[in-house]
């Protein structure tokens, strides 16, 4: 099992974590900086191009990228031996680096939870991927939007923590 914590394996996992993270946060920012602000400018007859084609495809890569970013990140923290101390925000190890990366890990975990258990179920309702009464769709869309915005807000301190500390 020693090869799992070999320096090259640690690097590879970090690279996979970054690749997944780019896919995840890139699509999160696409939704918040591009898609949501411009939907109102699209004529109604053209809206299905976004709602029925682009958004479902983007949401597929978005939610799986979120899951894999968390998976690779947790593996990385385990490889480097600080998963417990970081999740305890460094209070067990009295280590500021563990606290810093721990904040980032918790923000990331909250964000991934929002993706899978709030944004995705509500987007399925809003986009008509699951059957709900028509009057339930605006509320579902609003909930998905606000949690997407919450994740955009958290992506600022999350990314700060992730790149602030480099523990090898």
């Amino acid at each position: 099992m020693g090869f799992l914590t070999d320096p090259y394996a640690v690097f590879l996992v970090r690279w996979f974590h970054v690749l997944s993270g780019i896919m995840w946060i890139g699509l999160l920012w696409y939704f918040n900086f591009v898609q949501i602000p411009n939907m109102a400018k699209i004529p109604d007859e053209q809206k299905p191009a976004i709602g029925k084609v682009i958004a479902p495809a983007a949401l597929f890569w978005f939610r799986w990228a979120a899951a894999f970013t968390i998976l690779w990140g947790l593996i990385q923290a385990w490889q480097l031996g600080y998963i417990g101390d970081a999740l305890a925000l460094g209070l067990t190890s009295k280590n500021a680096a563990h606290m810093s990366i721990g904040f980032g890990m918790w923000f990331g975990l909250i964000m991934a939870f929002n993706v899978w258990f709030v944004i995705w179920p509500n987007q399925q309702k809003a986009l008509g991927l699951v059957e709900v009464p028509a009057e339930a769709k605006p509320a579902a869309a609003r909930t998905a939007m606000l949690f997407s915005r919450t994740n955009t807000m958290l992506s600022v301190p999350m990314s700060y923590s992730m790149v602030a500390v480099h523990i090898t």
Binding site: A96, R149, T152, M153, L154, V156
Partner: peptide
């Protein structure tokens, strides 16, 4: 009152504010 997260600009400003508080907590806790 309007939810601040409805504005993208306020969303980013809140994110920066959380970042500053977090950085100060990390710097001065230990």
């Amino acid at each position: 009152m309007k939810n601040p997260l409805e504005s993208l600009q306020n969303t980013i400003l809140l994110g920066i504010a959380i970042t500053i508080v977090m950085a100060l907590v990390v710097k001065y806790t230990f």
